[in-house]
Design a binder for these strands. Sequence first.
DNA 1: GAAATGACTCAAC
DNA 2: CGTTGAGCCATTT
Length: 122
Amino acid sequence: MLIYNRIYNIVRQIPYGKVATYGQVAELAGLLGKARLVGYALYRVDRADDDIPWHRVINAKGEISYSQVRHGADYLQQSRLEDEGIEFSPEGKIRLSQYRWRPPTELLEKLSTFLESSTGDH
DNA sequence: GAAATGACTCAAC
DNA sequence: CGTTGAGCCATTT
């Protein structure tokens, strides 16, 4: 649970009109290499929390991750992103180089501090 | 508590 | 490009 809160916390930081990859969110949350957990965390929350802009999280290929378990929420995701001014290529891909969110240095420092106090170790 | 699952990612063919 | 396989680990059964 605590670990998921970290993920949600990061996702909440993604600004309007920008996207982040699962791996990126994982890394920011102090979960480098554990991108799957991000997807799993978002699956648990999906429409329950309007607080979390889950639609701004996509995979490393610059595509929306489609899955049967989402019951069409994946298509909703695309339309929401388009509403934010993000353009999809004919193949349904996003230009990550253009739309990827670059977290401010301030946030990075803040997060590392948070992680330190969180582990309680050194 | 072992086995299965999952909105992922990367490297190697 | 596409496919494959291995790594990843909290949550669920």
